[in-house]
């Protein structure tokens, strides 16, 4: 009897532990809805999700990179680069919207591919490779745009950032599509399994006959691709490709991944956790805005939440 109680209590704790990020988000939402009557209204909720969508898409790629035990500091720069290329192709070269988007996506993916090549084949540390790429891609962007924003897009292109499907903003729709794709990729395909295996033990994975270099290159390239998707949405929404856009996104993306419970040493974590992590950051920002807290204090609050979350996660694992 006593034993049974213990087991059910243990199961309960395990469930709490599993959904702790979600529970944290829920508590935050409940508290804020009492503090501000505007918080839990449909326009505000849609606003939050739209705000989160761009950083979330970047975070999905970051989740995969971190799962392999790597890191990518160049996402913000790759995002700006692909946005600028896409804008330039339309405005300066007069290309068709879809062709321009395709070229923008290819450009960002190529940069990610290069990151992967340097990490997997040249065996350089991911931190250094992507730190260098962060500067290089930002430099490329400034060279290409001559340091000036590119703007003046047609309605078709504006749709991706500013359009709606019913009441739902298009960036949110795109985010959900990628959430589902990455979720399935990680859970149901060999590539996903290999990503977890590499993060858990790369040598053992290689000796099991898996081409680990190929997987790592694919993950970094995919991360470049997802950063490009975000860059194009952001360009469309702002109706302008800013050469300095995406600065600091790498830190927001890493924060979302870590808040979502993915281990920085790789091997464990989920993309669902990441979206919840991204939402926590966005809800916190939004709530503090509504409460008229200065953005200076918001930065402090954001950092404190990240520290607290990681601390609690570490505690619960012991």
């Amino acid at each position: 009897m006593n034993n049974e109680n213990n087991t059910s209590k243990k199961n309960f704790l395990e469930i709490i532990n599993k959904f702790k990020t979600g529970i944290g988000l829920l508590i935050l939402v409940i508290v804020l809805s009492f503090l501000s009557p505007y918080f839990l209204t449909i326009p505000n909720v849609l606003n939050i999700i739209r705000q989160v969508s761009i950083i979330a898409i970047v975070s999905f790629g970051m989740t995969m990179v971190i799962l392999t035990g790597g890191i990518d500091l160049s996402v913000g720069s790759m995002l700006a680069f692909s946005g600028a290329i896409t804008a330039g192709m339309m405005v300066n070269s007069g290309l068709n919207v879809f062709l321009a988007i395709l070229i923008g996506l290819a450009a960002g993916t190529a940069l990610g591919f290069f990151n992967g090549l340097a990490v997997a084949k040249a065996k350089l540390p991911a931190f250094i490779v992507t730190l260098a790429m962060m500067t290089i891609a930002r430099g490329f962007t400034l060279i290409y745009t001559d340091g000036r924003p590119i703007s003046g897009f047609n309605e078709t292109f504006r749709f991706f950032g500013a359009g709606y499907l019913g009441r739902i903003p298009i960036p949110v729709v795109i985010m959900f599509i990628f959430l589902i794709i990455i979720y399935i990729l990680l859970k149901k395909t060999p590539l996903g399994r290999y990503i977890y295996a590499i993060g858990g033990n790369e040598t053992a994975t290689k000796l099991s006959g898996i081409n680990t270099d190929k997987i790592k290159i694919a993950v970094y390239a995919l991360n470049g691709f997802l950063a490009s998707v975000s860059g194009i949405i952001l360009t469309s929404r702002l109706n302008s490709a800013q050469p300095m856009s995406g600065e600091g996104y790498e830190l927001d993306a890493i924060a979302a991944v870590v808040l979502g419970g993915t281990s920085l040493s790789g091997g464990s974590g989920t993309v669902i956790g990441t979206i919840v992590g991204a939402l926590i950051i966005a809800v916190l920002n939004n709530g503090l805005n509504l409460l008229n807290v200065s953005s200076f204090y918001q930065l402090v609050a954001k950092g404190a939440v990240i520290l607290l979350a990681v601390f609690l996660d570490r505690k619960s694992q012991q």
């Binding site: 399994r193 290999y194 977890y196 295996a197 858990g200 033990n201 040598t203 053992a204 994975t205 000796l207 099991s208 898996i210 091997g267 464990s268």
Partner: peptide
């Protein structure tokens, strides 16, 4: 170090 992915399940290790 070279044989197992300790954080994965028995089934996932056997099938890899």
């Amino acid at each position: 170090e070279e044989g197992l992915v300790l954080g994965l399940s028995v089934a996932n290790n056997i099938s890899i």
